[in-house]
Design a protein around this nucleic acid. Structure first.
Length: 331
DNA sequence: CTAGGGGTAAAT
DNA sequence: ATTTACCCCTAG
C-alpha cells in the first residue's frame, strides 16, 4: 500500500538540487535540517530526498543504481547532427523520438540526453497558448512558432506537435475549435495540491521567492569570472563548477516557472506580481538559457582533455546537453 | 542514517 | 503492457 502519491513540485526539486549543491549528495538529513530548505521540504523525509535524487540521476545518465543494464543498442538510426538541439523538446512516450541522443559525435564529449532538461511538450504547448492570448485560441503554426523561439526542437517536431495536440484535445486538456486550440477552462494543467488556498490568503507579494531563494543568475561577469578561474583549476574543480552552474540554472528555471504559475493563480495582487514573474521568467529562461549553453559549452571545452582522462569523474554529473554549436568547436 | 532492493499506482 | 515516479523495508 503505497501512500498516496505526492508528486514533487518544481520548487521541491529545486530545493533538493540546491541542497545537494550545498551539502553534497548523501547528506540528506543535513539538507533536510538546513533552514534554507526545510521550509520547502518539510513534508519530505530524508529517504524521500534520497529516492528523488536517485530518480533524477537515473534520468541524467541513463542508468542509475537501479535499472538493468538493458542498454539500448537499437538506437542507431538517425545520427543527430550537431546543430539539431541543445535542448531537446521532448516526447512523452508515443511514437516519436526513436533514439534518445546518447552522445555527441562532434566533440565526442558529452553526456546523455537528460530527460530532466527535456521540457515536457505538454507544458510548452499550454504555455504557448496561454502566452499567446489569442481570443479564439491559437493555431498550430502559431504554437509551433512560439515554441521554436525558445527551444531548438527536433527536426520532426512538427509531427510530434501535431500528435500531441491531437492527444491533448482528445483528453480534454485542450479544446479545439476550428483548427485552433485553447486551454480547457478548468484544470490549468499543472497540479497544485497543497499550498493552493494559502497562497491567496495573505495578500502579500507573490514572488519574492526568487530573491528569497537567492538563486544567483549567471551574469556575464560571473561567467567570465568562472571561466577565468577554471583555467587554473584541476579537472575536479572545474567539473564541480560546471556541474554546479548547470544545477543552479535548472533550479532557477524551476523557481521561475513556479513563480509564473503562482502569478497566474493569484488574481488579487496580480498586476504587479504577474509583471514581475513574467519579467523574471523572461530573463531566466529567454535570456539566460543561451548564456548557459555558452557557458556550459565553454566549460566542457576547457576541461575536455581532463575528462577524457578521468571519465569516471564526470559520469552522471551533468544533466544539460552540452552540444557544441557550429563555429564554437575548437579547443 | 544511508544505500539499495522492492512494490505498485499512475502515466503513457 | 510497459514504464515512471513515488513510497516502503531493511542491512550495514
Amino acid at each position: 500500500m503505497g501512500a498516496p502519491k505526492q508528486k514533487w513540485t518544481a520548487e521541491e526539486e529545486a530545493a533538493l538540487k540546491a541542497g545537494v549543491i550545498k551539502h553534497g549528495a548523501g547528506k540528506w538529513r543535513t539538507i533536510l535540517k538546513d533552514p534554507e530548505f526545510s521550509a520547502v521540504l518539510y513534508l519530505r523525509s530524508n529517504v524521500d530526498l534520497k529516492d528523488k535524487w536517485r530518480n533524477i540521476s537515473v534520468m541524467v545518465n541513463g542508468y542509475g543504481s537501479r535499472e538493468k543494464p538493458k542498454l539500448a543498442p537499437k538506437m542507431v538510426h538517425h545520427v543527430l547532427r550537431q546543430d539539431e538541439y541543445p535542448m531537446a523538446v521532448g516526447q512523452t512516450g508515443e511514437d516519436i523520438s526513436d533514439a534518445k541522443p546518447l552522445a555527441v559525435s562532434s566533440g565526442a564529449l558529452l553526456v546523455a540526453n537528460p530527460k530532466r532538461t527535456t521540457v515536457r511538450l505538454d507544458n510548452l504547448i499550454m504555455e504557448a497558448i496561454t502566452s499567446l492570448k489569442e481570443p479564439g485560441g491559437s493555431h498550430k503554426t502559431a504554437i509551433a512558432a512560439y515554441i521554436e523561439e525558445q527551444y531548438w526542437p527536433p527536426n520532426d517536431f512538427k509531427r510530434i506537435l501535431s500528435a500531441k495536440l491531437k492527444y491533448l484535445a482528445a483528453n480534454g486538456k485542450l479544446i479545439k475549435v476550428k483548427r485552433k486550440y485553447k486551454t480547457a477552462p478548468t484544470s490549468v494543467f499543472a497540479e497544485r495540491r497543497r499550498v493552493s488556498p494559502l497562497i491567496l490568503e495573505g495578500r502579500r507579494r507573490i514572488s519574492p521567492k526568487i530573491e528569497r531563494d537567492g538563486f544567483n543568475m549567471l551574469t556575464m561577469s560571473q561567467i567570465d569570472l568562472d571561466l577565468g578561474r577554471m583555467r587554473t583549476m584541476t579537472a575536479e574543480q572545474a567539473i564541480e563548477v560546471a556541474a554546479r552552474a548547470v544545477v543552479e540554472a535548472e533550479a532557477a528555471i524551476a523557481v521561475a516557472e513556479e513563480a509564473t504559475r503562482e502569478a497566474e493563480t493569484a488574481e488579487a495582487e496580480a498586476e504587479a506580481a504577474q509583471a514581475f514573474a513574467k519579467a523574471a521568467r523572461k530573463t531566466l529562461i529567454g535570456r539566460t538559457t543561451p548564456k548557459m549553453v555558452y557557458f556550459i559549452t565553454a566549460s566542457f571545452l576547457m576541461i575536455r582533455f581532463e575528462m577524457f582522462e578521468k571519465p569516471a569523474l564526470y559520469k552522471g554529473r551533468f544533466n544539460v546537453d552540452g552540444n557544441l554549436r557550429k563555429g564554437q568547436q575548437r579547443v
